[in-house]
Nucleic acid binder design. Structure first.
Lengths: 227, 227
DNA sequence: TTAATTTGTTAGTCATAGCTAACTTTTTTA
DNA sequence: TAAAAAAGTTAGCTATGACTAACAAATTAA
């Protein structure tokens, strides 16, 4: 534990790339993440990612061989985790104190996570009394940068008759979040699986005295706790 | 009231320049603000400001003739006021809720004021119950962009024997803020002017059972309310 | 196993926003 | 009022981080 991390002196873009890599590699659990995949995820051209990856390799946040898969160094991971911590703390603040809806927080948190001030984020954490989960049900890494990913059960993995509680969603897409909100689902909503249709994987569910049929893809993006 | 203001689509730099011009022209009350003065204020080269001024003129936020003084259009002023509103609301939040000291808030607020979200700033305002002054005693422009500058009395303008209350300081310099904090002065501190020395304008003051001698320049940067 | 497709890389361009150095215009002052 | 100083402008360079187009390597499929 000798070398202090250079958490600062990173551009917004560098931070965005490191966070994206972390989300694909560690949270997404992909065995191999390549240049084009990263470009897709960040919605930039492969040339741009290629360029940035070179820079991040020079700074020793990323390792990869030519034409090989991308990997994060410990330092790279550490920066990403701190960004995720900031992102989730801000989301929590926006939802719990500033009347933001579940589906409105992402873009603003995306900006706020780049604010550089250790004191700011630690005081925000204290102000909210050290929350451990964000409004999407994701674990918030602590101040020491400790991070663990909860094993997730998807709605689509359940059998007919199962009763569960919504604990989080894959929040990559704002349109998806909006859709979830609009049909009336919220964090902790109790959902009963009424029917799973074999031929297309669509699921008929019941919640708040409502019945809805959702697609397989929808079910894959909704994480639940069986009760 | 036909044209909606394009408050977004402005870069961080463009915003910084407009705010700087507002502070020099309106808050500073300078009759003439030139290119070099702006460069000095922003700590960039005159070539840089010249370049940016061209851009801001093209966007109709600034007007000036070649070799002439710089002026803001109504739209330019409006953007600057909204930035000042955001800056001061964030400073208030940092001081009142996140244990930031008076002298620590500037740099972080400087970052936070560029976050683009109308909802964020209005909700923050509501959360704090619509404060009208920031921790430095400056007036916070309201949501409608209405802004007025309180006439200010400087500590150095007072006669011997006067008793006053510290209401704000010229916060341009972090080192100055630190110094003010360190000698024990805070917002609302009661100060008695013990002696004004003719030959160098230095002032002997008393506050919190302490006596201090401060320079003329110090006195010019401290705004007070006579009581 | 060769051909097609996908993936990764490189070269060269653009915009933003900074810089220095050189130059011009304006203002000051001797 | 002419020379000096200050202020403003321009040209040309740098870095960051996008982009497209062209090309090379690796993987997949016929």
């Amino acid at each position: 534990m000798t070398n202090k991390l250079n958490l600062n002196n990173l551009t917004k873009s560098e931070e965005d790339y490191l966070k994206a890599l972390f989300q694909l590699l560690i949270e997404g659990g992909s065995a191999k993440v390549g240049n084009n995949q990263l470009a897709d995820y960040l919605k930039v051209s492969p040339a741009s990612t290629n360029n940035m990856i070179k820079k991040l390799k020079a700074k020793e946040y990323v390792v990869s061989e030519k034409y090989g898969k991308l990997e994060l160094t410990e330092e790279g991971k550490s920066i990403a985790v701190r960004l995720i911590r900031k992102h989730r703390l801000w989301e929590t603040f926006l939802c719990n104190y500033l009347n933001f809806g579940w589906d409105e927080v992402h873009d603003v948190a995306e900006q706020l996570e780049h604010i550089k001030s250790q004191k700011l984020i630690n005081e925000l954490d204290r102000f909210m009394d050290f929350p451990t989960k964000d409004p999407h049900g994701e674990v918030i890494p602590n101040a020491a940068g400790e991070y663990f990913i909860l094993p997730k059960t998807t709605l689509s993995s359940l059998e007919e008759g199962a009763i569960c509680q919504l604990i989080s969603v894959n929040d990559a897409s704002v349109t998806f979040l909006k859709y979830v909100s609009e049909i009336g689902l919220a964090l902790s909503s109790e959902i009963k699986v009424l029917e799973v249709r074999e031929f297309d994987g669509s699921i008929k569910i019941q919640f708040n005295n409502t019945e809805e049929t959702v697609t397989r893809k929808f079910g894959d993006n909704v994480f639940v706790k069986v009760i």
